[in-house]
Design a protein around this nucleic acid. Structure first.
Lengths: 158, 158
DNA sequence: GCATAATGCTTGCGTTTGCAAGCATATCGC
DNA sequence: GCGATATGCTTGCAAACGCAAGCATTATGC
């Protein structure tokens, strides 16, 4: 393959590895999430974004942007989670178009449990392959990709 | 959130950022791939795995493993790509169960074009955010996640 | 103010995908 | 060799998702 700029090959390889690594991790997570918590990986992130948002709530379009999915998908994801009580619906007095998705107490609890599974699986992936220092390097480098967006879930808890 | 082991938080954050970063990159790619080449990101990887395989061919289950999808998905992905001539079908004389997916000349050409788009989009993501040295660090660290599996697409061309 | 545009959300429809069952073929145990 | 099991692939069905259209509400231009 030919590259036009000196760093093109580096871009190419880094992006390839990023995507392949993430696929692998996501694959590992989905099994445990489904069997232990009855959640999909996307539902996990759904709850994560709410947890980190002010008042534990977000509008559906904002949630859609952060999850990189269509707004209609948020509508349809929220429905069953309302039924099981993980989230609730809230309207805005000033703007009747808005309908927030709000994380409930049960949703918060569910998220805490899922976080344990997430950490456990992340451990399986990373441990023995990286030293602490290297892992921090990796984290810091990756952070530049997500730090700009408002949907960065990895910032320190306030 | 509580962590049980010293490095748990590092695992947690690294995995979060990895998944979020990949989602973002994949999102960027999908638009151009669809409009310019008529490919999905998954179809791109589909062709990539064939390109890198001996004889430019793989069985459907092997392809499924590498793409982290169900075998039935490979069957259904291959069908339209056979029609458009990007891949062809090949049976094994010794084992009649096997049916390989083979990359065609047209598929190879399509892949070369798509690779340009891939590199361009990867450049948008990485340039100005990383120096060459940092990018290599990132690549090397991520490589440990994919190097074990037979589906590593990022090794140097033979 | 009022027509026009923009925004937020939902719904219908088609596509993509996973799961489970089924079929054909190959391998294993004896 | 031959039944039992495993493997590779495909198909029916249902769930998940994007796109486009539609409705309600708000913002904008004049």
């Amino acid at each position: 393959m030919q590259y036009y700029f000196a760093m093109d090959k580096s871009y190419y390889i880094a992006a390839l590895r990023l995507l392949q690594s993430a696929d692998q991790v996501r694959d590992r997570l989905s099994g445990d999430f489904a069997s232990i918590h009855g959640l999909s990986v996307n539902e996990f992130f759904f709850l994560m974004h709410l947890e980190r948002a002010p008042l534990h709530r977000l509008s559906r379009v904002e949630l859609a942007k952060r999850l990189h999915v269509n707004a209609s998908t948020v509508t349809r994801m929220a429905a069953p989670m309302e039924k099981t009580g993980l989230v609730s619906r809230q309207t805005d007095d000033r703007d009747a178009r808005l309908s927030f998705v709000v994380l409930s107490k049960a949703g918060h609890k569910k998220l805490l449990e899922a976080n344990k599974t997430f950490t456990k699986q992340a451990g399986y992936v990373f441990q023995d392959r990286w030293k602490e220092k290297e892992l921090e390097q990796l984290s810091n480098l990756l952070h530049r990709l997500v730090a700009d967006a408002p949907g960065d879930l990895s910032r320190d808890d306030p």
